[in-house]
């Protein structure tokens, strides 16, 4: 078991014919991921190193059996690509594209919720997801991952890789490593991932990597307190981050006293999570938490 993706995941890559899409699509395939199709309306009928290219996602679903998409297209096309994927019939959408305008993100998120409530969007501007030994979609460097029973969820991509590495060094493998991204309107939240890890019988403990800004970590803390039976080890980046030059007061009114690293760490500790002071401690703390 793992969450969201496993050995049965069949991936279409929207953007496979671009240089980035090709590099990561082929790297994900080399890891063993079933990359079954790419899309490009102008290059339908061709292939990329044996991966067939279709005009659109609907064709890839029908012809190649794709059930998941990996979107790696320029930001101007990404919102449309997400909607095309949902309409095409895939159940899981991973979008790594960054710089999608906020209003496009907000519209797409709410359109999906209204018209495709069973389709999950991961991202945008996220590192992707790896279920070690089964499936890797996105930027995760597979050489530091190892099959096992710890779930990782992180806003930051690099800190997800970093914590994967710290666990693997301790001999602790991972069930799934999920990068949810740091954009204003993420399709999948900490809570979505905590819920999935709690329900996944293979996962024994969860590492949660947050950062300053927003209130997602505080909401996750409430969820942990009320629902999590598995140990959670958390780390929050940004304790010493310089205060942003924020303008206007609307943001401050919305977040109140939430949003600081100290506030998030306190909330997580109060919820029963173990809070690490730096990423290098994560492995040790998880080891102890599993014994406890």
């Amino acid at each position: 078991m793992a969450i969201f993706v496993d050995q049965n995941t069949k991936v279409v890559v929207q953007g496979l014919t671009g240089s980035q899409g090709r590099f990561y699509g082929l790297r994900n395939r080399a890891y063993g991921t079933q990359i079954v199709a790419g899309t490009n309306p102008k290059k339908a009928g061709t292939d990329v190193e044996g991966i067939p290219v279709y005009a659109g996602v609907a064709d890839a679903v029908r012809e190649a059996g794709a059930n998941t998409t990996f979107i790696i297209v320029p930001s101007a096309f990404a919102a449309d690509a997400i909607m095309e994927a949902a309409e095409g019939g895939v159940g899981f959408i991973v979008c790594v594209t960054e710089h999608i305008p906020m209003h496009d993100q907000a519209r797409v998120y709410n359109l999906l919720r209204r018209d495709f409530p069973n389709t999950r969007l991961l991202g945008p501007n996220c590192a992707g997801i790896i279920s070690p030994g089964k499936c890797n979609i996105g930027f995760n460097p597979p050489e530091v991952a190892k099959e096992g029973s710890i779930g990782i969820v992180s806003r930051s991509g690099t800190l997800a890789y970093q914590s994967t590495y710290e666990l693997t060094r301790k001999g602790l493998g991972q069930s799934s490593v999920v990068g949810i991204g740091g954009d204003p309107v993420p399709g999948t939240s900490f809570i979505d991932c905590l819920q999935a890890f709690e329900a996944d019988p293979e996962t024994k403990g969860v590492i949660m990597i947050g950062e300053i800004g927003g209130t997602q970590e505080e909401e996750a803390a409430d969820y942990i307190k009320a629902n999590m039976t598995k140990p959670v080890v958390a780390y929050i980046a940004g304790v010493t981050a310089p205060a942003g030059r924020k303008m206007g007061h609307a943001g401050a009114i919305v977040t109140g006293n939430k949003g600081t690293a100290a506030g998030k760490m306190k909330a997580l500790e109060a919820a029963g999570a173990v809070v690490a002071q730096n990423p290098t401690q994560l492995g040790d703390l998880m080891e102890q938490a599993l014994k406890g």
Binding site: G182, I212, V239, T240, A241, P242, A261, N278
Partner: peptide, 29 residues
């Protein structure tokens, strides 16, 4: 550092071991 998360975390870790950062710089993906 690469990535805003790792860059922030690097600043924090430098502070934690008694130093102080001259800057924040994320060279990005």
């Amino acid at each position: 550092a690469n990535g805003a998360g790792l860059a922030m975390s690097t600043l924090d870790t430098v502070k934690q071991v008694g130093g102080s950062a001259a800057n924040f710089l994320d060279i990005g993906g």
